[in-house]
Simulated assay, not measured.
Amino acid sequence: MRLLDEVGLPGRALDLTGCALIACGLALLVFACERSSDWGFLDVGSLVPFIAGVLLLVVFVLVEVRTAEPWSDLSHLRGARTSVPLAVTFLVGAVTLLGAALALMAAYAGRARGRSARQQERGT
């Protein structure tokens, strides 16, 4: 802890609660997404960690808003100057990622059936 005080910002303490909440929340989300490919997304083994991860991230936001010295200052997300571009960037990234994932899944499904891309395109 002494080293963190020496290199950190003067007068700021490390928000261990915020660190723990975001780390556990993201870990549970990653675990649920990774396991869903084997167990199915609606399986209890995938769904429970996903819901728990989302809840931990919601608790993280609630704690960070009320903490005197938060791990991440979320107040800059309140204004339209930052929240709108951030939301647009997120949506564009999500749509791009989804499109790429669907294209790769279609190509993989065709390869698994022993069909070329052209055969897959024609539906033969």
Rank of each mutant, 00 (worst) to 15 (best):
M1V: 07
L3Y: 08
E6G: 07
G8S: 14
G8E: 10
A13F: 00
A13C: 05
D15I: 00
T17I: 02
T17E: 03
I22H: 00
A23H: 07
C24D: 01
L26H: 11
L26N: 13
L26Y: 10
V30T: 14
A32M: 10
E34W: 11
R35I: 12
S36W: 03
S36E: 09
S37L: 12
S37G: 09
D38C: 08
F41P: 06
F41R: 13
L42S: 10
V44I: 08
G45F: 02
S46D: 08
S46M: 09
L47W: 05
V48D: 05
P49G: 13
F50T: 02
F50V: 01
V58M: 10
F60R: 01
V61M: 02
L62D: 11
V63Y: 00
V63R: 01
R66F: 03
T67Q: 03
T67E: 04
T67Y: 02
E69G: 01
E69R: 00
P70V: 04
L74M: 04
G79M: 01
G79Q: 01
A80C: 04
T82D: 12
V84D: 00
V84P: 00
V84Y: 02
L86I: 02
A87F: 14
V88H: 01
T89L: 15
T89M: 13
F90D: 06
V92F: 06
G93T: 01
G93L: 03
T96V: 11
L97D: 07
L97F: 08
L98W: 15
A100L: 15
L102E: 11
L102V: 04
A103G: 08
L104E: 08
M105Y: 07
A107R: 14
A107C: 06
R111W: 05
R111V: 02
A112R: 09
R113L: 12
S116Q: 08
S116A: 06
S116P: 04
A117S: 12
A117C: 07
A117F: 10
Q119M: 03
Q119H: 01
Q119D: 11
Q120L: 03
E121R: 08
R122D: 12
R122H: 12
G123E: 03
T124Q: 04
